[in-house]
Every structure is written in structure tokens, then in C-alpha cells.
């Protein structure tokens, strides 16, 4: 679901350029599965699917598989179109250090939007 981020948010991409200097270990949880997203200087360098023995991360974003799918369609329905819209419905959970997420919120939204085009 998130593997293509290494291409859509690759070094030198427009989205990576939105977060210069951002080094971030992000986990995207889809139901029971974890996906570790390694971000360096704003670029997604690696996406690894769990399970992980000793996961270490800054921020985790969790939602059900159904919610992620509805969120990542090219034109999502109302309430499914934005990560904060999911939060409003209680469909997503943010854990860990939320500073990288909130300080780079537009970057995060653009990052997810690249999946809407790519998938």
C-alpha cells in the first residue's frame, strides 16, 4: 500500500523538497500490519513491512485497512479525504512524538496524495 513512496517521494522529488532537513521514522499501521517508513532530508528512503522484533519510531499513524483504502482512492468521499477528517471521525490514531507530523502537516498530506495518483 505504501511501497511506492520510495518513488513518489524520492530524493529530489517536489514533495521531498517540502521538508528539507526532516529525518523521521514513521510507522503506518494498517489494521494489524506495520509499515516502517524511513525519511531522510524529506525523502522516503525505505518502506519495510513488519512484523518487527524491536521497532523504533518517532510517530505512528494507525487506521483500519478499509479506512486507508477509502482514504487513498483518487477522489475520496467526504470524511475520507483528509488525515484530519479521519481524526474527526475517530478513524485514525496518532501516537508517539507528534511534532514531526504537525510541523510538516502539509508535507504529510502531499505525501499521501502521491499514493492516490500512483495506485
Amino acid at each position: 500500500m505504501f511501497q511506492t513512496l520510495t518513488h513518489t517521494v524520492a530524493p529530489g522529488s517536489p514533495v521531498a523538497a517540502m521538508a528539507p532537513g526532516l529525518d523521521w521514522q514513521l510507522v503506518l499501521r494498517t489494521g494489524p500490519e506495520d509499515h516502517a517508513v524511513t525519511i531522510r532530508d524529506g525523502a522516503v528512503m525505505q518502506v519495510t513491512q513488519g512484523p518487527f522484533v524491536m521497532p523504533s519510531w518517532h510517530t505512528r499513524i494507525s487506521a483500519s485497512v478499509e479506512e486507508w483504502r477509502a482514504f487513498l482512492v483518487p477522489v475520496p468521499k467526504p470524511g475520507h479525504h483528509d488525515i484530519i477528517a479521519l481524526l474527526r471521525r475517530g478513524a485514525v490514531q496518532f501516537d508517539g512524538d507528534l511534532h514531526p507530523l504537525m510541523a510538516h502537516l502539509m508535507y504529510v498530506k502531499r505525501m499521501f496524495e502521491t499514493l492516490r495518483v500512483a495506485e
Binding site: D82, M102, A103, L105, K109
Partner: peptide, 16 residues
């Protein structure tokens, strides 16, 4: 102080 107000306010508005 550690979050750019313009950037986060713009990002919140964008999603709406």
C-alpha cells in the same frame, strides 16, 4: 514557537 504557524494553519485549512 517550534511549529511555523503559517504552515500548519494553511495545512489545516487545506484539508477542510
Amino acid at each position: 514557537a517550534d511549529v511555523h504557524g503559517g504552515r500548519i494553519c494553511g495545512a489545516i485549512a487545506y484539508g477542510l
